[in-house]
């Protein structure tokens, strides 16, 4: 599997009269997980959408490897999980997950293994209307993983998931995309989640977004719930909180 790095080169975006992103440049290393944290409405989702090629920057360029995002998407090497699960209500959980492979023009792999992994065993044939909010979100995450993307974009992916499930997903999912060498960008409100899942945390200022801190997360040991209780983890979280508070 190809490792793809992500280059944002002075990208800007404005909606109407509002500058949402002013020249924003960053390079995200291949195979790394980077978290974007920042206050609500700071433009982090817009940056993610530009990386996905859903929004086009007003100026500047985004490159995934050497390609523009649309080309990568056409090759089925990009996937995104949205804040809202956005499932097709007439498809079962299994068929919704398979949609990810279908859209990426890839053979549908082992859906059932993925279903078990996200803890939906026994619910594969249920339609979204019969699932809870957290279960729907897990379907959406599984859908983004089924195509084994090189670039995986997660926009508040565990927002509606209950605390217990979130803890399990935080532990179970990262090894999956790490082992495949995917480059992951994660947008989140949760400082703890950012530290737990990422190799690097970018703290953004209120709108228009600008990087106020670039913090490498060099934690040793497995990333699980025990790690959260270590002093190292607490120090990193504290540092990020401090930057966030200063920037507001």
């Amino acid at each position: 599997m190809a490792s793809v790095d992500i280059h944002c080169d002075s990208i800007t975006k404005r909606f109407g009269g509002t500058e949402v992103v002013i020249p924003f440049s960053v390079t995200l290393a291949a195979g790394q997980t980077t978290a974007l944290v920042g206050p609500s409405g700071c433009g982090k989702s817009t940056i993610l959408r530009m990386i996905a090629g859903l929004d086009t920057p007003d100026s500047g360029t985004v490159a995934l490897g050497a390609e523009p995002p649309r080309t990568v998407a056409r090759n089925g090497a990009l996937a995104m999980a949205f804040q809202d699960p956005s499932l097709l209500p007439w498809r079962s959980a299994r068929a919704n997950i398979a949609l990810g492979a279908e859209l990426a023009r890839k053979p549908v792999g082992d859906v059932d293994a993925l279903i078990d992994l996200v803890g939906l065993g026994g619910f594969a044939d249920h339609r979204p209307g019969e699932l809870s909010g957290g279960m729907r979100q897990r379907v959406a995450i599984a859908r983004s993983l089924i195509s084994e993307p090189d670039v995986l974009l997660l926009d508040e992916p565990f927002g509606a998931v209950d605390a217990m499930t979130r803890r399990r997903l935080n532990e179970d999912l990262p090894p999956l995309w790490r082992s495949r060498g995917a480059t992951v960008v994660l947008v989140t409100h949760s400082v703890q989640q950012a530290v737990l899942l990422s190799d690097r945390v970018l703290v953004l200022s209120p709108r228009p977004a600008r990087v106020v801190a670039d913090i490498p997360i060099a934690l040793t040991g497995t990333r699980d719930s025990k790690l959260v209780q270590t002093a190292e983890f607490a120090a990193l979280s504290k540092e990020i909180f401090a930057v966030l508070e200063d920037s507001i």
Binding site: L54, R70, G100, A104
Partner: peptide, 26 residues
């Protein structure tokens, strides 16, 4: 058709025909 579903299809660069068939017509 919900905007995010359209975005989902766009994020894979799926064709308009595919979107029509799988999401918009239902």
């Amino acid at each position: 058709t919900p905007g995010q579903v359209v975005d989902l299809f766009r994020s894979y660069d799926a064709g308009r025909w595919h979107l029509l068939r799988a999401a918009q017509i239902p």
